[in-house]
Amino acid sequence: MATPITVGVIGATGNTGRTVVEGLLSSTTKFTVTSFTREVSVNSPANQRLKSKGVRIVGYDLNGPKEKLVDQLAGIDILISCITWEHLDLQVPWIEAAKEAGVKRFVPSEWVGPAPKGVIDIKDKKLEILGVIQRAGLPYTIIDVGCWYQVFVPKVPSGKSDHGHMIYIDHRIVEDGNQKFALTDMADIGKYVAQIVSDPRTLNRHVFAYTEVLSMNEIWDVMARASGEDPPKDYVSGAELNEIIDVCRKRLQESESGMRARDIMDVANFNMGQYRISWCIRGDNTPEYADYLGYLDFWKMFPDFPKGRSLMEFYQEVLRGNASG
């Protein structure tokens, strides 16, 4: 019997972390999984649910001695970060400790779509983290998965999809709505991750995993077919998006200087404005552009791997009340 691959997951109880853990546990490859969680959260209900599935729970303290973190990482083959975008810098001590502990592969927090530097502030920060990894000489794999299905759940007149509709997301269709971009059901991310990290060809490479490639018009059409109703269509231009980004940037800078309180809608409109420019106008979030950037394409590497849930199937679940945004 093959020796199990030992995987540590940082942020295993979050949205991305949960799907990563589920994908590892359900994989045909044998993994043993450790959830690295803050010491105060070791006994949380979420971690206890993971423990009941056979996940080892280890509490950490980034303010404690570095040597302890190194010891906790001893024996970990692969370390996967699901740290949220607001706390990407917290990966730095993990990178340093992982290098010292001899971790064989680090997967930093990415989980969106490919983009060049200078388009999306969050992506730029992630590229800075990649620089930290490479300067340390730590083996890594970058995994991008496109836009999550859960981001765009159009409303329909009956209200059946309202519970899945993200209130913090601008659902207006960008420009003419014809630029295609990659999408993935959040629930399928972990299955793709398990396949990627168990393959030696993906070491020190960028990998693009996705399920569908659709335009915003096609996304709305899928909801129309799933529901039998016509979801309303409102439009926004690239110029309007750039104006929103500029206004929100100014207000967020003022909040950082103490001149005003930070507004969650400013954060959402700023971040999603940049993503929508990248996805829906520039066309960065596509297999073709990922190939240009040097990514490995998941489906070219693993053509026989079972495809994840389609957007149609996801919307049908939303309409039945069994899935949310």
Rank of each mutant, 00 (worst) to 15 (best):
N204Y: 04
L319M: 04
I189D: 13
D144M: 03
D221M: 09
G190Q: 10
G308D: 06
G17S: 05
W299A: 04
R309D: 04
G146P: 03
M259W: 06
D284F: 00
G321D: 07
V21F: 02
I143E: 07
A136C: 03
K66L: 02
D291V: 00
R282E: 13
S27N: 08
D304Q: 12
V318R: 03
S109M: 12
L311N: 10
A136E: 06
F305P: 00
I264K: 14
K51E: 15
Q134T: 11
D221S: 13
E212Q: 15
S109V: 09
E288V: 07
K117H: 14
R262D: 06
I169N: 03
L79P: 01
D188K: 12
A12Q: 13
V119Y: 09
H163M: 05
P154I: 10
G137C: 01
A182E: 11
L25M: 08
W220F: 15
G17V: 01
Q253N: 14
L252Q: 14
A268V: 01
I244T: 06
I245W: 05
Y140E: 09
V236D: 00
T84F: 07
D176L: 06
I245P: 08
N47V: 01
M216W: 09
L241S: 00
Q253I: 05
K155C: 09
Q179K: 01
A187E: 13
F208Q: 10
C248S: 14
D291R: 15
E86S: 11
A46Q: 06
T211E: 08
L319A: 03
D61M: 00
E175S: 07
W220C: 04
V119F: 08
F36Q: 13
A323V: 05
Q134F: 07
K104A: 14
V70W: 00
G113M: 11
V153A: 11
G258N: 12
G159D: 10
I169Q: 05
V55N: 07
V132S: 07
A12S: 15
H206Q: 15
D185R: 14
I120Y: 11
I120N: 13
K250I: 04
L183R: 10
Y210D: 04
G321S: 10
V174R: 01
F181K: 08
H87L: 06
D185M: 09
I5W: 09
R205F: 05
V40C: 12
D188N: 14
I281L: 00
W220P: 02
L50M: 02
P139A: 01
K104N: 12
N271W: 05
T141A: 00
G308W: 03
